Simulated assay, not measured.
Amino acid sequence: MTSTSASACGGSAQGNSSAVPWSSLPDYLLTISYLSLTAPVDRVRFAAVCTAWRAVASPHLPCSGVGRPQGYPLVLRKVIFSEEPTLSSCVVAAITNVHELAFYKVGSPGSGWTIRGLNWNDRLMDIAFCNGELYGITRDIKRLIKYEFGVNQLEELDVNIRSLCMLNNYENGPDEHVRYILELRGNLVMVVSNYTLYNSFTAIEKNNFTVFELVHSHRYSWPKVDNLRDYALFVGPTGSKAVRVPASGLGEMQKNHIYFSHHRCLRRNDKIPNGVKVFLKSLNDDGYRVYYKKDESVMDGVKGIMSTGYYAMGGVHPPMWLFPERCAED
């Protein structure tokens, strides 16, 4: 087994083809590595590597789910944090594989995850903390919702779900595919992805992104954002983040740019998008590759927000953005 890795700030590394497979490392080495991680976010990512690594981490992570029928596994697709995960007041929120909310407080992992679904047969599409408060957008009815945390009679963390507005008050097109939300300069923004296919059975030809900012006066509205200025947005099914790009630059990262990870891994018999280039591949060329493609947004002849897409082929789960320490502050 070989490995490849890449950082959000540019650069890549490739493993040695004779290296021991990660899943075959001895448990004592994995335990030492796991216990050396002090941040909960790093421990969650450790457990997500493979079954063997999760088995080592499982005694230390909340594994039960209050509100989940017995016998159904708890699978998390996206995990976010309300504040620095080393603080005991930090709330961990996640989207499950059946589009529910899962949450727990870092200071009390023994209580396990609490699961909250939605009414009206709706499903979660994305979640984000903004100014310490948790928001979500739904997949079917297309609503903006807010999760208001409190303590129940058992002195356990609980949540009330409040619907804020429908998402029909922003300009959208018939090809709308997926929406992401994240915090940008202290405000909640929504990134809407539209794509065009070769045909209904093949891969993506082009992605177009539109950014909207939530404004609340006497009502909620979503005015369009035409320029990200000195920020770059990283979006994807496993996590999204706004990163400020300094005047001196930050690796290959560019201002006014959206970097996105495609919502699923391409199958080996899928046709890859037109114009993509190879970003990473395994050393033994066993079919595991990551492609990238740059697109330019042009509206009425005016250059807009640029985007670069990354497409993984041969994997099971979509890739995750990893930010070096110099990217941590936005």
Rank of each mutant, 00 (worst) to 15 (best):
M1H: 14
M1P: 14
S5I: 14
G10K: 05
G11V: 04
S12Y: 11
S12W: 10
S12M: 12
A13Y: 09
S18T: 15
P21H: 03
W22M: 10
L25F: 09
D27R: 12
Y28W: 09
L29A: 11
I32V: 09
I32A: 10
Y34K: 03
S36Y: 00
L37N: 02
T38C: 07
A39G: 04
P40R: 01
R45V: 10
F46Y: 07
V49M: 03
V49E: 00
R54N: 12
A55F: 03
A55L: 07
P59W: 04
H60E: 06
C63I: 15
C63L: 14
S64T: 11
P69K: 10
G71E: 04
Y72F: 15
Y72M: 15
P73Y: 08
P73S: 12
L74N: 01
V75A: 12
V75H: 13
K78R: 14
I80T: 09
F81V: 06
F81E: 04
E83K: 12
P85E: 06
S88I: 07
V92E: 01
I95T: 10
N97E: 15
V98M: 13
L101K: 05
L101H: 07
F103L: 01
F103A: 02
V106E: 02
G110V: 06
S111C: 09
S111Q: 11
W113K: 05
I115Y: 01
G117W: 01
L118T: 01
N119M: 11
W120A: 13
R123W: 13
M125R: 14
D126K: 05
A128Q: 00
F129L: 02
F129K: 00
C130V: 15
C130H: 05
E133Y: 06
Y135F: 13
T138D: 04
R139G: 06
D140Q: 12
D140C: 11
I145R: 01
K146R: 15
Y147P: 02
V151S: 07
N152Q: 03
E155A: 08
L157W: 01
M166C: 12
L167D: 01
D175N: 10
H177Y: 14
R179N: 10
G186K: 04
V191A: 01
S200A: 15
A203T: 12
F209L: 02
F209Q: 01
V211Y: 00
L214R: 08
V215Q: 10
V215K: 11
V215F: 06
V215A: 07
Y220A: 00
N227Q: 03
D230K: 07
L233Y: 01
V235M: 05
P237T: 05
T238Q: 15
A247I: 12
S248G: 09
L250Q: 09
M253W: 02
M253D: 00
H257V: 02
H257C: 14
I258G: 02
S261M: 15
H262E: 14
R264T: 13
R268F: 11
N269A: 11
D270H: 09
K271C: 13
K271W: 13
I272G: 03
P273H: 07
P273L: 08
V278E: 10
N284D: 14
D286R: 08
R289Y: 08
V290L: 07
K293Q: 10
D295K: 05
S297W: 03
V302F: 04
K303I: 08
G304L: 04
M306R: 08
T308M: 07
M313G: 02
V316I: 15
M320V: 14
W321L: 03
P324M: 05
E325D: 13
